[in-house]
């Protein structure tokens, strides 16, 4: 609004002496007197806006600082979690190595048991083969008995000359009989041994609690345990990797929050900027109030028209009171004149 042009038009329209004019002037003066407290009221309201925005800005700052502190705590906890995760990863690597070693031991054990099984089976076969040899011994023993009997007969025929030979024949026959008994006994023992070995092969690893019924069962269970162990380590490793990823994300997010809260704190400078603009407006309203009071006094016959302030000079004072480029730009846009905004850098080192 161009205030100066408004005052000029009104001055021309009201020109001319007379009682009616004086009465009108007094009424206008009275009206202007009422406008002054309105301006005071506006100034007070704007002052209250400054106080309110400052209070709000400080409360906001407290909340932002609380958020920032919480983000800091989260970041600290995330760092601690990351350290624990790293420690767990190292332990898992160690467990994985142990698991691989256990698996190799189990594989070696299974291979050993299988080799031993084959050896025992071969042994049983060989033991049973010994029985065949015992049959030959028994045949020889029977043939020897027959031979001793024939020798005894021939010794009887020889009479007195064959008496010594008959003794030898009896001894041979007795020896053959004992050999036969010994061969039978050995055969029985070999058979029993073979049976026991076969039984042991069929159920060698049987346990009281029934957890393993045979070597095959035991080795399968051992292999399953080794496989479960490897699987468990892999799953733990995967889980630890996910925790590590989540922790890294948490740290990154905390950093983002930290940056945002810092920007929000800096953004509170707006309150100082607006405070200065409003204080300038309040000062201008106060100045305008005084001018209106003076004008009212003149119109009501209480003052001298020559004592009225220069409105153009008032505009200059308003302009000189600006501190920001934005204020100067607004002034130039509204008045169509005034100084051009200075294009200076926001940051300058001398």
């Amino acid at each position: 609004m161009n205030g100066r042009a408004g005052w000029g038009r009104r001055a021309r329209r009201d020109a001319g002496p007379g009682p009616t004019r004086q009465a009108d002037a007094a009424r206008v003066g009275s009206a202007l007197e009422h406008a002054v407290p309105v301006l005071d009221l506006l100034g007070a309201q704007l002052g209250h806006v400054v106080e309110t925005t400052e209070h709000a800005a400080l409360s906001f700052l407290d909340e932002v600082k609380a958020v920032d502190a919480a983000a800091g705590n989260v970041a600290s906890e995330a760092d601690r979690l990351a350290a624990l995760t790293a420690e767990q990863s190292a332990e898992l690597a160690e467990i994985a190595a142990i698991s691989r070693g256990s698996g190799e031991v189990i594989e070696q054990l299974v291979a050993f048991i299988e080799r031993r099984d084959r050896a025992v089976i071969d042994l049983v076969d060989e033991v049973r083969g010994l029985s065949d040899h015992l049959g030959s011994i028994q045949k020889i023993s029977r043939a020897t008995t027959t031979l001793a009997l024939n020798a005894k007969i021939e010794a009887s025929r020889a009479g007195e000359h064959g008496a010594g030979f008959q003794v030898v024949a009896d001894e041979v026959r007795e020896l053959s009989r004992q050999s036969d008994i010994a061969a039978r006994d050995i055969g029985d023992r070999i058979e029993q041994l073979a049976l026991r070995l076969a039984e042991a092969m069929a159920d060698r690893a049987g346990t009281d609690d029934g957890t393993a019924r045979s070597d095959g069962d035991l080795t399968r269970r051992l292999e399953a345990v080794a496989q479960q162990q490897r699987s468990l380590v892999e799953r733990l490793d995967t889980f630890t990797g996910r925790v590590d990823g989540a922790t890294r994300q948490l740290v990154a997010n905390s950093g983002t929050v930290h940056g945002l809260t810092t920007s929000m704190m800096a953004g509170l400078q707006f309150q100082d900027v607006t405070r200065q603009v409003i204080e300038h407006v309040v000062g201008t309203l106060d100045q305008l109030g005084h001018q209106l009071g003076d004008v009212a006094g003149v119109l009501e016959g209480r003052g001298d028209v020559d004592g009225l302030g220069d409105l153009e000079a008032s505009m200059d004072r308003i302009r000189d009171g600006y501190v920001m480029d934005r204020q100067r730009q607004t002034h130039a846009e509204v008045t169509g004149a005034g100084p051009r905004a200075e294009a200076a850098p926001a940051i300058e080192l001398f």
Binding site: E54, D68, M265, Q269, Q271, R275
Partner: peptide, 16 residues
């Protein structure tokens, strides 16, 4: 600074 808002917000930033 005579502005409490600037003093407190800038202090927080610098302290951080």
């Amino acid at each position: 600074d005579d502005s409490r808002t600037v003093l407190m917000s800038m202090s927080a930033i610098l302290t951080k």
